[in-house]
Every structure is written in C-alpha cells, then in structure tokens.
Design a protein around this nucleic acid. Structure first.
Lengths: 209, 209
DNA sequence: CAGCTTCCCTAACAAGTGTTTGGTAGATTA
DNA sequence: TAATCTACCAAACACTTGTTAGGGAAGCTG
C-alpha cells in the first residue's frame, strides 16, 4: 500500500458522481473481491471488470478500502432490516429461529458476494478502527441468537443438554458458509434451502428410533 | 510479484537446509498465513515472526508459494492417513460418520492453521496447476462422505427425505468451519466437541416430541 | 455559442512486493 | 590448521501496488 499520506479527510467538493454508477461499480467490485479475495484483488482487476482504467475508479471512490467498507456496510444494514423485523415479531423461539435462518438465506441470495467477503475478511478487519461497526454487528448478532436459543431451552422446545454457545456457533456457521457454494438461480430457492437446513438442524439427519 | 523469470527448476544442489528447521519455519509461516491471510502476509512478516530477515527464508524455501504448498500438502497427507484408516474399518454408516467427524476435529486440533488456510484460500488455489492435488483430495473427500451418507440411507439409519448433496455440504461445513474459532487447549477437547456436534447433526437441537 | 458538469483516460508517483546475489560468522570435519 | 558446511545478513533487483494530477470528450444549461 503506497501513499502513507492519509489525511483522513473526505475531500471531494467539486465532483459529484452519480449514486447509480457507484452502485454498479460496487456490485462489480464485490464480485471480484468475493472470487479472488480482497487482498489478491487489485484495483486494476476491478477496473478491468468494469471496462475502465484503474485511476478512473477514484472519480467515484476515494480508496479501495472505502469500496470494501461500503459493500459490507450496505449488506449489514439490509441484513439488520430483515433481522429486526423478525426479532420484533411476537414469535416463539422455534419460529424465531426458523425465521432468522430463512431470512439469512434470503440475504445470501441477495448479497452472496458481500456475505462471502464478510466470511473471509471480517476476522482481520475488526482490528481496524474503520471497521469497528463489524464488531458491534457481530455482538448484536450473537446476542439475538443466544437469546433465542436460551428462550427455546427455557420453554422446553430446544434440548437442554447442549452447550449453548457451541449450538450458537453451529447454527450460525452452518447457515453462513452456504454462501461459499450457493449460486443464485441454481435449482434451489433460498426458502427451499432454508427448509432443508432447518430440518437438519432441528431434527438431525438420523432416523428417529 | 516481481521476477517473472521463472525457469521452473528445483535448483539448489550445494545447499542442504535441515528438515527440522524447515518444519519450525513452516509452523511459524502457517500461523501468520492463517491469521492474516496468504496474500496479506508478506515474506518480511514471516521472517519477522521467525526472528530473521526476509531473504534468509530463501535459504530454506525457494518461494513463498512453495511454503504454502508444503503446509497444505503436509496437512492433507496426515488427514488422509486418518481418514483411510477409518474408511477401511468394518463400520456401519453411522459409526463411520461418527469416526470421520471425530477424526476431523482431531485434525483441526493438530493442524488448526493449515485448516484455516485451506478454508480461506483453497477456492482460488485450485485453478493453479501447482495446487491440482487439492482438487483430487476434494473429490476423494466428497466421494467418501457421499458414499457413507448413501449407505446410511439405504440401511435406514439416515433420513431418506433429505437432499443428500445438501446434507453432505451441511455436515462438511459444520465440521470444518469450527477451525475458525477453535483454539487448542481451550476447555473443550476435540473429542468433546465432536461428541456435541455429532449429537446436533444426528439428532438435531429440537426436543423430540 | 460559452460555460459547466460528468465521467473517463494518460501518465506518472512512492511505497511495497517476492526474490537474488554475494558475503560471513560459527560450527563441523579433514 | 585448513577446508567445508550451515544458517543467516545486507543490499539490492525488477516489478506491482494503491493513488494522484492534469486533461479532454460528450452532454447539458444559460
């Protein structure tokens, strides 16, 4: 990373790029990031995919990192829109879990690239102050899931003999890693995948005896 | 990546680095790769962690990429040692699945960094001819798991109403993503985690009605 | 028409990249 | 003691990286 000279100022007063074009370019960038990894992706590759030259990207964005940030922030904002409406609904623990999982698969369907990027990069991004909102989101996420699971145990719909934090990571991971192989428009709809996953998570893959 | 001049020759006749030191350095490199990501890891960072200078690494290895390859290859070799002994044993489908999962968690315990690297990087490494063995391994892996699951369905111990490929990915992912949060010596032993995971995968987290 | 705005190109920059070359201190061997 | 080998350092190399500065073509506005 050249140019240490970061003055941390959002300076672009005379230029006014259109939000539509920004969104287009971010979509392209997200795809390349997801496929190649953030660090392995050069701005020239992004520009290539967009049919322009590297420097031209800086008319729309002030850095490669800010592209990444905007991609992740947009995704998380929409994710929480969906989650919050589920969590504020008067549902039992099992129905809440079902709704959260289904909502998650819908998000994977809509933001596959962003989810894949989040999975790969968030772990070492959280150390940077710029991406502190990732930590906050992750904490809200954990709280929402743990609360739901605990309610389920209390109300007798989820098993009481399990390590609840292990169960949390289990459910969380099983859902989100799906983004690594899921392809939109590939036979299964998000709802169908959610149904099958829920069936496995809730009832297991073994035959009941 | 400078130095296009790759003559693809394993030229190092007069030098003879000790295998012990190589192993030490690979352990260090694997940790840094796992923590920061392969591309984000510079050879200078590895050298730093090893207490030496960047160029000195090239006494032991002929490239950064060959370090990565040796790390992954060593891991996969040992993984298949364990898997093969399980698969050649006269076990039923359920016992095979249990043994494979347990063995997997033991491998995570022993090769945590290598597993984490594999998870993050394998997807875009498989396109390079140098890492073709990853594809082969992945195919053997898939075959072993699918066969076990199919046997289980045929013998009536696994549910017949599930998409078997979805179930495969479900089991596979639930196991291996654990490497992203698992820390050796942290309360749970690999066997204990395997037991709980198996309980959830086989019987689900819902209370039986 | 002139002026302005939007969007991109050309061409360069400074820092960082993986890698090589030659040397050398210290132990080991002859 | 001299020769050899091991394991590293010091300094450079060719190239890639994210980023910037200046310019210009097309379209719209007065």
């Amino acid at each position: 990373m050249p140019k240490k000279n970061q003055q941390h100022q959002q300076k672009k007063p005379p230029v006014t790029p259109s939000p539509e074009r920004r969104e287009e370019l971010l979509k392209i960038a997200a795809d390349v990031f997801a496929e190649q990894g953030y660090n392995a992706t050069t701005v020239r590759k992004i520009a290539d995919a967009a049919g322009m030259l590297a420097g031209s990207l800086y008319y729309h964005f002030d850095s490669k990192e800010s592209m990444l940030e905007e991609i992740l922030r947009t995704f998380l904002t929409e994710l929480w829109d969906g989650y919050d409406s589920v969590l504020s609904a008067p549902l039992g623990p099992r129905e809440t879990l079902e709704a959260l999982v289904t909502e998650s698969f819908r998000e994977i369907d809509r933001h596959r690239s962003a989810v894949a990027i989040y999975q790969k990069e968030s772990k070492h991004l959280v150390t940077q102050t710029r991406f502190e909102y990732l930590v906050e989101s992750q904490q809200r996420f954990e709280k929402a899931w743990l609360t739901t699971l605990e309610r389920g145990v209390t109300e007798g719909v989820f098993r009481a003999d399990l390590d609840i934090r292990l169960a949390y990571r289990f459910v969380r991971d099983t859902v989100w890693v799906a983004a690594s192989w899921y392809r939109p428009g590939g036979g299964h709809s998000p709802e169908e995948i959610a149904r099958q996953y829920l069936s496995m998570v809730l009832d297991g893959i073994a035959v009941r005896t």
